[in-house]
């Protein structure tokens, strides 16, 4: 009996019926809708959104495009993350689409320094939008990490970082409607805390790795 036979024996002994994992697309849709409901709900509950924000989307097509690309990018990243946790499911195209959409979103915000999308103003300013962005991103991140655990991420670090990115940017994205519109403010108080989830996830993964190695 060779080494593989012994392993096979052990695995067969350990076999128990399993419930099939839900499709990653279904999980991603569930995550997106749930997280959107949470972010929109909690943001609205903690302060009124910027007056006239919805009207600005109708009046300024560039602002509408900015909002749409941001949401599309976040959704595509999370779909790619969850698909990547299902072995064999193609993810590269989705990941690129997500990165491209987020790139367009951020590029449009940055272009606001030269040609503002909307007139800058303090209307709708929220006093704690930075910390709100971080706090509101936590439940979607925990939910995303839980859904990832239900699948089998082959590249756990990349998956966790992707989930952190999507979760961090979701409240940042909604702050465009809920908080004041000013390019520098958006970048510093909304996008930056959202992006901070990426290095935070890297540190978390590193810590988990160290902890596992120590055990």
């Amino acid at each position: 009996m060779n080494r593989h036979d012994k392993t096979i024996d052990a695995l067969v002994d350990d076999l128990a019926p399993v419930r099939l994992a839900p499709r990653p697309e279904a999980l991603a849709t569930f995550w997106l809708l749930g997280s959107l409901a949470w972010v929109v709900g909690v943001t609205m509950a903690s302060g009124a959104p910027r007056p006239g924000a919805l009207g600005q989307m109708v009046d300024h097509p560039r602002f509408l495009a900015e909002v749409v690309f941001g949401l599309m990018g976040i959704a595509a990243v999370m779909f790619a993350v969850l698909r990547s946790a299902s072995p064999g499911a193609a993810t590269r195209g989705l990941a690129w689409a997500g990165a491209a959409a987020l790139g367009v979103w951020l590029a449009n915000i940055l272009a606001g320094f030269a040609v503002p999308t909307l007139d800058s103003g303090m209307l709708g300013k929220r006093p704690h939008c930075f910390s709100e962005t971080v706090l509101y991103a936590l439940p979607p991140f925990v939910a995303g990490a839980y859904l990832l655990r239900r699948l089998y991420p082959l590249r756990p670090t990349a998956s966790l970082v992707g989930a952190g990115l999507a979760s961090g940017l979701l409240p940042a994205w909604f702050m465009q409607l809920a908080c004041m519109y000013d390019t520098a403010h958006i970048l510093l108080h909304h996008v930056l805390p959202g992006l901070l989830f990426v290095p935070a996830m890297c540190v978390l993964v590193w810590l988990i790795g160290r902890l596992r190695a120590a055990i």
């Binding site: 096979i8 399993v18 946790a85 072995p87 064999g88 499911a89 699948l151 089998y152 082959l154």
Partner: peptide, 23 residues
Amino acid sequence: LLAIHEARHTYDPARPFRPWLFA
């Protein structure tokens, strides 16, 4: 072999087996 065991719940019978296995 260990990974196949741990990931067996993620195999979707509606999809081909090889891409799942070789991934």
